[in-house]
């Protein structure tokens, strides 16, 4: 997977690159609009992480340029602006997703993978992890070819854990991911215990991939 990160805050960019790198995502970096346009013109990316506010221009302009060049790269807008208007404008211009700063790196990785899966696999979108097969379109799970009933929340949790395999996930990051739009209203993450417990049980022996990390959160271990 090849990702282009367009972000003027070097320190934040380092963190993102560091996180994605350890997840086998090759991440290139552009600090401004000019650099970004150069890279986009020459290379193909699976996904472009695009900051809206750049020192020499606007992320929307880059997005328009990508669309003008008929590039198939997935685009995730990243912005400090969380206004509904900005979000809608970005999505109307053809962005695949929108993320507001500050964000969880685990959330970013999960979104990147989702966008790439959507763009590349389309109709036959399945994620395999050892004996576990997750059908993205059908939102169903099979373990060693045996269909396993999971709730919507458990399915999302599983996908999130697998997407961030070998990463420590904080309870708050998991809770926010499961709460979607409501994440900002959360102040109690305890509800995820029940989901983790149930998912573990349903996965049977595969449930052992889920490890607890000292009161911090959870980790999917391969």
């Amino acid at each position: 997977m090849k990702v282009l990160l367009i972000e003027d805050e070097k320190s934040l960019a380092d963190s993102v690159i560091n996180y994605l790198h350890t997840s086998e995502v090759q991440c290139e970096y552009a600090a401004n609009k000019a650099e970004a346009l150069d890279k986009i013109a020459v290379y193909e990316y699976d996904c472009i992480l695009l900051d809206i506010m750049l020192p020499d221009g606007n992320g929307f302009e880059i997005l328009q340029e990508i669309k003008r060049q008929n590039k198939q790269d997935g685009v995730i807008l990243v912005s400090a602006k969380d206004g509904v208007e900005t979000r809608i404008e970005g999505l109307n211009l053809g962005a695949d997703d929108y993320l507001t700063k500050p964000f969880n790196l685990s959330e970013l990785l999960a979104r990147v993978q989702a966008v790439i899966r959507r763009n590349q696999f389309g109709g036959n979108n399945k994620l395999q992890f050892n004996e576990i097969e997750i059908d993205i379109n059908a939102k169903s799970v099979t373990i060693s070819k045996v269909a396993t009933e999971v709730t919507r929340k458990e399915y999302e949790l599983l996908l999130y854990l697998v997407a961030n395999k070998n990463k420590v996930l904080s309870k708050s990051a998991i809770a926010e991911h499961l709460s979607g739009d409501m994440a900002d209203s959360l102040d109690n993450f305890d509800f995820i215990y029940a989901h983790i417990k149930n998912l573990k049980k349903k996965l049977g022996t595969a449930g052992e991939y889920i490890n607890t990390v000292y009161g911090m959160g959870y980790k999917w271990h391969d």
């Binding site: 805050e9 320190s11 500050p102 420590v168 904080s170 911090m216």
Partner: peptide, 15 residues
């Protein structure tokens, strides 16, 4: 932005 950096660094540390 500084908040985003802070949050990301904590997440890096966690790993």
């Amino acid at each position: 932005t500084p908040l985003a950096v802070f949050k990301a660094k904590v997440e890096n540390l966690m790993q």
